[in-house]
Simulated assay, not measured.
Amino acid sequence: MFWRSKDILQFPEWALVRGLYKSMGYSDEDLSRPLVGIANSWNRVVPGHYNLNLVSDSVKQGILQAGGTPVEFGVIAACDGIAQGHEGMHYILPTRDLIANDIEMMIGAHRLDGVVLLASCDKIVPGMLMAAARMDIPAILVTGGPMEGGCEFDGRKADISALTEALGMLKTGRMTAEEYRHLEDCAGPGCGSCSFFGTANTMCCLSEALGLTLPGTATIPAIRADRQRAAQESGRQIMRMIKEGVTARRIINGKSIENTIRLNSAVGGSTNAILHLLAVAYEADVELNVDKFEELSRTTPLIAKIFPAA
């Protein structure tokens, strides 16, 4: 097994690098194993990323179990929902490319052998997929999971977008201020990516179709124990990929991107997926244009109607 970090961890020639790692508590044993980056976009601003520190802990367990050394670093994340309706929205799309650049720099500067990407929300997931395709090292994306539905609203479980809908009801006298306040308190009952099929949950599902997320894990709710087990298995899986030399571009290719486009059409995913998949394809050196989306959508049946497409 070849790994990139080994070249800069040889004793005694690279004692300076080893000494810097040892200043943080890493041992000789730690430095004898592949260094696996964990690009963690946790913060206390974005609901979909609020649980990523717990997810990261489980990823680390999996990496250690499989013979690697996890090295975690932070990545920015901004919330589309909180940024809406004011000048903050001008900052949101540029964060995608900033995230891709940030991860590239951390991987390149430290010669990391693989990377586990932790994200849930709109621009962060595609930014991380772009970084994986650009760097072409073993990479796996672990999502934080969707928020569960909230209290009952208009005959269904509420989600955060219900607050916008209900504002009209409040202003036309169909809802009292007290009822609206209650909805505000319970529309989002816990952390996770917003519980409707917007860009965040779309991109998490598409990362499965692309092949960079473990099958069946994108829709595990954020607060479920299965979310942690999936993260731990992802840690073990990245080590298998490193040992077998499976890099991102062996997964992200023309066929997997077509599969991803078909899934988006089949489930009525976000139209923002077009913007993001074009960027991911570019980073992977895969030729793709908007005509391909039109072509594939015309031969792909709609098999699921999910709010808000329903």
Rank of each mutant, 00 (worst) to 15 (best):
M1E: 13
D7K: 14
I8V: 13
Q10N: 14
R18P: 01
Y21R: 00
M24A: 15
D28P: 09
E29Y: 12
S32W: 00
S32A: 15
L35S: 04
R44D: 10
R44H: 10
V46D: 03
V55I: 13
D57G: 09
V59S: 02
G62P: 00
I63W: 03
I63S: 01
Q65D: 15
A66N: 06
A66C: 11
G67F: 02
G74D: 12
I76T: 06
I76K: 08
A78C: 07
A78G: 04
Q84H: 03
E87I: 11
G88K: 07
L93Q: 01
P94M: 06
A100Y: 03
N101M: 07
D102M: 12
I107V: 15
A109W: 06
R111G: 02
V115E: 03
V115D: 00
V115N: 06
L117Q: 06
A119W: 00
C121R: 00
D122T: 08
I124Q: 13
V125M: 01
P126A: 09
G127A: 04
M130Y: 02
M130L: 07
D136M: 05
T143L: 00
E152G: 13
A158V: 04
D159S: 14
I160L: 12
S161I: 13
S161L: 14
T164Y: 14
L167S: 15
M169K: 12
L170K: 13
R174V: 10
T176Y: 02
H182I: 06
L183M: 04
G190I: 04
C191M: 14
S195Y: 08
T199R: 07
A200G: 14
T202I: 01
T202K: 10
M203R: 08
C205D: 06
L206W: 04
G211L: 05
L214D: 02
P215K: 13
I220E: 00
P221R: 11
A230C: 07
A230Y: 07
I242E: 00
V246T: 15
A248H: 00
I252D: 00
K255F: 06
T271Q: 12
H276I: 03
L277H: 08
L278D: 05
E283H: 10
A284K: 11
N289D: 15
K292V: 15
S297R: 15
R298I: 02
P301D: 10
I303W: 06
